[in-house]
Computed example of a mutant assay.
Amino acid sequence: MSATRYLLILPLMAVIAYMAIVALVYLSQRSLLYPGAGAAPLPEPATWGETAHIKTPDGELLHALYSQGDSDKPCVLLFFGNGDRVDNYAFLARALAARGIGLLAISYRGYPGSTGLPSEKGLLTDGIAAFDWLSAQAAGGIVVLGRSLGTGVAVHTTANRPAVGVILVSPYLSVLSVAQMHYPFLPVEFLLKDPFRSDLNIAKVRQPKLFLHGRLDDSIPLSSGEALYRLAPEPKRMVIYDGAGHNDIFNDSMVGDVIRFVEALKANGP
Rank of each mutant, 00 (worst) to 15 (best):
G127T: 06
G122S: 12
V164F: 08
V143P: 10
S119W: 04
T125V: 15
T157D: 11
P162K: 10
A129I: 08
P162H: 12
S119H: 11
R161P: 11
S107R: 11
G113R: 09
L104K: 00
T125M: 10
G141F: 03
R109I: 07
S114D: 12
S119M: 05
G146E: 01
L117M: 14
F131C: 06
F131K: 04
N160Q: 14
Y111I: 10
Q137E: 06
S148V: 13
A163Q: 01
A159G: 13
L168R: 11
L123C: 02
A136N: 12
L104V: 04
W133T: 07
G116W: 10
H156D: 15
L123M: 15
S119Y: 03
P162W: 13
A130I: 05
T125P: 10
A130H: 14
L149I: 11
T125W: 06
V144F: 01
D126P: 09
G140T: 02
N160T: 14
A129C: 08
G140A: 11
I142W: 07
S119N: 14
L134T: 10
V155I: 15
P162V: 05
D132C: 04
G110W: 01
I106N: 01
G116S: 15
A129G: 04
A136G: 12
R109H: 10
A159P: 05
A163Y: 00
G127V: 13
I106R: 04
A130K: 11
G113I: 13
G110A: 06
L134Y: 11
A105Y: 02
V155M: 06
D132Y: 10
A129Q: 01
L149C: 13
T157F: 00
